[in-house]
């Protein structure tokens, strides 16, 4: 899976699933010994700048609380940023990202989690639209 897409999906994956998979990877002796923490998980903010449509000007809408972490496994870097203040899960997500880069067997397990996450998001989006579309006002236009 494309690394960018993986980061997007690990950012949205279920917290328990992410931690459980990371826990399983950590029990591999090789992963545990080759793990380097590059940046410990840190809670902080991302300033959201938006471009408004009238003058095409940027302005600051406000800040979003995120947690960020970066690790390496066997020299392969892994990075994660997730909304909220959960340092453990963010560290786990960074670990999964690094493992996916480091080892294709582990990578396919991470991909599975991502695919599953994508399916869940699609279902939610679909369900949301099914509910919403009934609130659209329909007009009968005379042609």
């Amino acid at each position: 899976m494309d690394r960018n897409r993986r980061a997007e999906l690990l950012a949205r994956a279920d917290a328990d699933d992410v931690r459980q998979l990371a826990e399983a990877f950590l029990s591999h002796r090789q992963v545990a010994t080759e793990l380097d923490i590059i940046a410990p998980p840190e809670v902080g903010m991302v300033m959201m700048q938006v471009r408004e449509p009238v003058c095409k000007e940027r302005f600051h809408l406000g800040e979003v609380v995120v947690t960020r972490a970066e690790v390496a496994v066997g020299g392969a870097r892994g990075w994660a940023m997730r909304a909220g203040t959960d340092r453990e899960t963010t560290l786990a997500a960074a670990l999964l990202d690094a493992c996916a880069e480091h080892d294709s067997a582990l990578g396919s397990q991470v991909d599975d989690l991502c695919v599953e996450t994508k399916a869940r998001l699609d279902r939610a989006r679909h369900q949301e639209w099914t509910e919403l579309r009934s609130t659209a006002v329909s007009f009968e236009e005379l042609d």
Binding site: M47, R51, E63
Partner: peptide, 12 residues
């Protein structure tokens, strides 16, 4: 809290 990053300009 530290400010970790800025978003890229978000197109509304």
């Amino acid at each position: 809290l530290p400010r970790l990053a800025y978003t890229t300009p978000i197109d509304v």
